[in-house]
Design a protein around this nucleic acid. Structure first.
Length: 817
DNA sequence: GTGCCCTTAATTTTT
DNA sequence: TTAAGGGCAC
C-alpha cells in the first residue's frame, strides 16, 4: 500500500505508476471510479487530476460565476491570500465553496490535486465532490485532497508514520477499542474502575488531543486529573498504542501536528504541494485542527475558511468558536466576506432567529435578509405535558399533509421534529406508532456501530491482520467458545511473556498444553479458521464477499444469531447480510476495513414519505419546509447541565442551538413547551424556556393551548408528591410563571388564567453550600460534603456518601410538614 | 463460564 | 423510567 502514495502528488514529486493491475481487476471505468473514490489510496489521481484541470481550463468562460450573488462572487473571486467567508444559515455556502474550487481550476491557479479542502463529515465531503463534479460537468475524479480532516490525516500519516514511531499500516481504533485498552491499563494500575471510570479518562484524553497536547506537553493541572493519574495513564496509553501500531481518532490529527512541528522539511513539502487550502465549517475546528491548518497554510496563506460563528454547537467536543472569531488576527489582512442573503426561510423565521441569536456576546455579526414572501409567523404553543405535546404535533402533522391554515399541503418528507436530547424522541415515536404515522429517526446508533457489525468486522480484521489484538479479544469468545476470563488471561500472559501478538500467544499456549478441555479444542479450531481464512484472501476463485460469508458461517457467528431468540436477532442477521452486500463496492476486505474505520455512515431507507425526528445537532446543515421544535423548557432547552458545566459559555451555545433549530425551517416553524414532563421517571414541572422570551412577538403567533381549557385539566394532573407541594408555594412567584402571565397580558392571547402548574425554581434548588443539610427523596437527610458542577456529594444519615444530581436535592426548610 | 439481578446514572456525537 | 454494566451465585 505505501508504495502508491506518491500518486496523489504532483508528477515532479513522483507518481508515474499507472494502474495496470487496477485496470485488470476492475474492468468498467465506472467501477474503477467508484473504488477510487472510496479506497484511501488513490492511484492515478495525480494523472487524472491534471488532465481534468487541463480540460477545465480549456473551458475559459465561467458560467458558474454568473450564478452567484455579489457577495458569493466576491468570496469566490478572492483567490489569493486569507479569506474568511462568513456564511449565515441558508446563504448558499456550499455553492460558493464549490464555485471557488472550480474557479481555482478554471483560472489555472492550481491543479485539482494541489487543492486541499477539508470538511468535518464524510457527507459534506461527498456532497462537495459531487457538486464540484456537476459544476465541471464531469465526474468527481481527481480531487484526492478533498475529504474530512481525519481522512486526509490518515493519508498523510501513512506516509510519515515512522516519524512518530508507527508503521504505515497502523490500525485505527474506534471508541470501543479505546475503552477496552484503557480498562486494561487502569486494571494494571490498580485503579478502582468504579470510582474512576475508563470513560472518564477516555474523555480527558480525547480532550487533550483536541487541544493538541501530547503527554509531554500536558499542563500539571490536567495531568493531575483522574485521581492524580491522568497524565500517567495518558502516557502509558500512547505507549501502548505505539506497541499495537495503532492510533485513535485524535491521534490522526495530533500526530500530524507533531510531525509538522518537528520536521520542517516535511511541512515545507506540503506547504508547497497544497497551493490552496479550503476549510468548511471553520467554527467547528478544535485546537489541533486549527494548528494543523495554520501550519499548512503558513507559507502562502492561501487559505479560505468558511463558517458561521452563530452555528458553533460543538464546543463540548473541543470546537473553539474562538478560532473563527480570531481569524483576522491570525491572518492579518484577511478578506472577510459576509454571505447574508438567505435563500431558505421566510422573513418571519429569519427575524425570529436573528432576534434570538442577538442575545449572544462577541459575535462577528451578520444580518440575514431574504426576498422571500412573508409567509406564516412562527407558532408557539404550550401543553400540559410531554405526551400531550406529542399528540398535538402528531395531529398537526396530519393536518399539514392536507394543507391547513393557509399553508400548502405538505408531504411527510418535508416535516421534521428537532429535539434537544434524544430521550425526547421517545414520546414522539410512541405516539406515531399508535396513530400509524410513518417516521424516521435520523442519527442514533450508526450501522457500523452496531454490535453485530462490529463483531463481524473484528473477524475480518483478525483475518486480514492476525496481530490485531483488540479485534482478536473481541471475537475470541464470541460466539461463546468456553474461553472465559481465565482462558483469556492465560493467552494474554503467554503473549506478553514472549512479546508476541495474542494469536501467536494462543498458539503457544495450546502447544504447551496450557489449556484443557472444551476451551482448548475450540481455540484450536478458531486459530485454524483464522489461518485458513487468511490464506483464502489470496484465493483468486473466491470473491471477498464469499470469503466474508465463509468466515461468518464457519466461525459460528451467523449461527449464534440464528439460535438467538431475542426480538433483535432477525434484524441483526439482516444487518450482517447488508454488511456483506456493502463489501461489493470494495476491492478486498482490507480495502473495506480501511474505508469503514473512517466512514461510519449508512443511510438505508425503504422509501415512502416519513416525518424526520432528530436532535438539533443532527439537523445542522439540513432544511425542512415545516419544522417542529418541542421541549422549549428551561433545564431541558437550554440544558441545565450545559449551563451548570460551562455557565454563560454553555448558555450561549444553547442559544446557537436554538438559532440552528429555527433556521432549519423554510416555511413553517412551530415551537412548543410542556408544563410537566417526566424526567427519569419522576414528574417534574417545567417552566418555559428563556429563549421563548427572546422570540420577537410581532413574528410569533401564540396558539391557544387547547388542552388547558378542556375538561379534565385537574383530573389529568399527576399526583403531586412532597416535592411538588413544596414547590407549589413558590409557583406563583417563579420567573417562569411571571413570564407566562406577562406574555399573556402583553400579547392579549389567552394563556392559562389559572394553573395548578407547580413550578420548581431550578436556580434556587441547584445552589448548595458545603456543610448544608439537605433532603433527598430516596436517601433522606444528609450533609453536603462537596460540590462539583451540578453534582453534589452528600453524606447521608441513613445511607453512605453519594454523589447525586443537585436537582434531586432540596433544602429541608422547603418542605412543609 | 454463564446468566441473572442489582446498582447506578441519566445532553448533544463526528471521525 | 430504563438501560447498561458489574458482581455474584449456580
Amino acid at each position: 500500500m505505501p508504495e502508491n502514495w506518491r500518486d496523489d502528488l504532483p508528477a515532479e514529486h513522483g507518481g508515474g505508476k499507472r494502474g495496470t493491475l487496477w485496470e485488470r481487476v476492475f474492468r468498467s471505468p465506472a467501477q474503477r471510479a467508484r473504488l477510487r473514490d472510496m479506497s484511501s489510496f488513490d492511484e492515478n489521481d495525480a494523472f487524472e487530476g491534471a488532465s481534468l484541470a487541463a480540460r477545465a481550463m480549456a473551458a475559459r468562460p465561467a458560467p458558474y460565476l454568473d450564478d452567484l450573488n455579489p457577495a458569493q462572487r466576491e468570496a469566490v473571486e478572492a483567490l489569493d491570500g486569507p479569506v474568511l467567508m462568513l456564511a449565515g444559515a441558508g446563504t448558499g455556502k456550499t455553492k460558493a465553496l464549490t464555485a471557488r474550487i472550480v474557479h481555482l481550476l478554471n483560472t489555472g491557479r492550481a491543479r485539482s490535486n494541489e487543492i486541499l479542502s477539508v470538511t468535518f463529515t464524510n457527507k459534506a465531503a461527498r456532497e462537495m465532490k459531487n457538486r464540484v463534479g456537476a459544476m465541471l460537468g464531469q465526474s468527481i475524479e481527481g480531487m484526492p485532497w478533498l475529504g474530512t480532516f481525519h481522512a486526509i490525516c490518515v493519508k498523510l500519516l501513512r506516509r510519515h508514520a515512522e516519524l512518530v514511531g508507527l508503521k504505515s499500516n497502523f490500525t485505527i481504533l474506534d471508541r470501543d477499542d479505546q475503552i477496552r485498552l484503557l480498562k486494561q491499563l487502569i486494571a494494571a494500575e490498580h485503579i478502582d474502575e468504579k470510582r474512576w471510570p475508563a470513560r472518564q479518562i477516555a474523555a480527558l484524553i480525547d480532550g487533550w488531543k483536541n487541544r493538541a497536547l501530547t503527554p509531554e506537553k500536558l499542563p500539571a493541572a490536567d495531568a493531575g486529573a483522574y485521581n492524580h493519574r491522568g497524565g500517567e495513564i495518558y502516557r502509558q496509553y500512547q505507549t501502548r498504542l505505539r506497541e499495537l501500531n495503532a492510533v485513535d481518532f485524535g491521534d490522526l490529527l495530533l500526530h500530524m501536528v507533531v510531525i509538522f512541528q518537528t520536521h520542517p522539511d516535511v511541512l515545507e513539502q506540503y506547504q508547497r504541494w497544497f497551493r490552496y487550502v479550503l476549510v468548511d465549517e471553520y467554527q467547528d475546528t478544535n485546537v489541533a485542527q486549527y494548528l494543523w491548518l495554520r501550519l499548512l497554510a503558513g507559507g502562502h496563506r492561501n487559505i479560505c475558511c468558511v463558517g458561521d460563528d452563530d452555528q458553533s454547537i460543538y464546543g463540548w467536543r473541543g470546537a473553539e468558536v474562538g478560532n473563527i472569531l480570531r481569524f483576522e488576527k491570525d491572518f492579518p489582512g484577511a478578506k472577510v466576506v459576509r454571505l447574508e442573503q438567505n435563500y431558505r426561510s421566510t422573513p418571519h423565521i429569519l427575524a425570529a432567529a436573528s432576534n434570538v441569536i442577538r442575545g449572544n456576546e462577541g459575535r462577528l455579526g451578520k444580518t440575514l435578509w431574504t426576498e422571500a414572501e412573508e409567509g406564516e409567523k412562527l407558532r408557539l404553543i404550550g401543553h400540559w405535558d410531554g405526551e400531550e405535546e406529542a399528540r398535538w404535533i402528531g395531529e398537526e402533522i396530519e393536518s399539514l399533509q392536507g394543507g391547513t391554515r393557509g399553508v400548502r399541503p405538505m408531504s411527510l418528507d418535508e416535516m421534521a421534529i428537532l429535539v434537544r436530547a434524544s430521550h425526547q424522541m421517545r414520546a414522539f415515536e410512541d405516539r406515531f406508532l399508535t396513530i400509524g404515522l410513518p417516521y424516521r429517526v435520523i442519527g442514533g446508533p450508526r450501522f457500523y456501530e452496531r454490535l453485530e457489525i462490529r463483531d463481524a468486522m473484528a473477524y475480518f480484521r483478525v483475518v486480514v491482520s492476525p496481530d490485531d489484538d483488540l479485534a482478536f479479544e473481541r471475537i475470541v469468545n464470541t460466539p461463546k467458545r468456553g474461553l472465559g476470563n481465565v482462558a483469556q488471561q492465560k493467552i494474554q500472559t503467554t503473549a506478553r511473556a514472549h512479546g508476541v501478538p495474542l494469536v501467536q500467544g494462543a498458539r503457544m499456549l495450546l502447544a504447551k498444553k496450557g489449556l484443557g478441555g472444551k476451551g482448548a479444542t475450540e481455540l484450536a479450531q478458531l486459530l485454524n479458521g483464522i489461518d485458513r481464512w487468511g490464506r483464502m484472501t489470496g484465493d483468486a476463485d473466491l470473491t471477498h464477499m464469499e470469503l466474508a460469508e465463509i468466515i461468518l458461517d464457519e466461525s459460528g457467528y451467523t449461527a449464534m444469531w440464528q439460535n438467538d431468540k431475542t426480538p433483535e436477532a432477525p434484524g441483526r442477521l439482516e444487518n450482517l447480510k447488508e454488511l456483506v452486500k456493502a463489501l461489493e463496492q470494495f476491492e478486498n476486505l482490507q480495502g473495506f476495513l480501511e474505508h469503514v474505520s473512517l466512514i461510519m455512515d449508512n443511510e438505508s431507507d425503504d422509501g415512502g414519505a416519513k416525518v424526520s425526528i432528530m436532535t438539533l445537532h443532527a439537523a445542522k446543515g439540513l432544511e425542512f419546509p415545516a419544522v417542529f421544535l418541542p421541549g422549549w423548557e428551561d433545564g431541558l432547552f437550554p440544558s441545565q447541565r450545559s449551563m451548570d458545566e460551562t455557565g454563560l459559555k454553555g448558555l450561549e451555545e444553547e442559544r446557537r442551538l436554538a438559532y440552528v433549530g429555527i433556521t432549519r425551517a423554510e416555511e413553517l416553524c412551530t415551537i412548543s413547551f410542556a408544563g410537566n414532563r417526566r424526567v427519569f421517571g419522576q414528574w417534574q414541572s417545567q417552566m418555559p424556556s428563556r429563549f421563548i422570551d427572546e422570540l420577537p412577538e410581532e413574528h410569533v403567533e401564540v396558539l391557544t393551548p387547547p388542552g388547558l381549557y378542556g375538561g379534565g385539566y385537574g383530573a389529568a394532573r399527576p399526583s403531586a408528591g412532597i416535592e411538588a407541594r413544596a414547590a407549589q408555594a413558590d409557583a406563583y412567584n417563579s420567573p417562569g410563571w411571571r413570564r407566562m402571565q406577562a406574555r399573556a397580558r402583553e400579547w392579549g392571547t389567552s394563556q392559562p388564567r389559572e394553573s395548578r402548574t407547580t413550578v420548581i425554581d431550578l436556580d434556587a434548588v441547584s445552589s448548595f453550600t458545603v456543610g448544608e443539610r439537605v433532603f433527598h427523596q430516596k436517601f433522606g437527610y444528609g450533609a453536603v460534603t462537596a460540590i462539583e458542577g451540578d453534582k453534589v456529594e452528600v453524606d447521608f444519615e441513613k445511607a453512605s456518601t453519594k454523589k447525586v444530581v443537585a436537582r434531586f436535592l432540596t433544602s429541608p426548610d422547603d418542605i412543609p410538614f
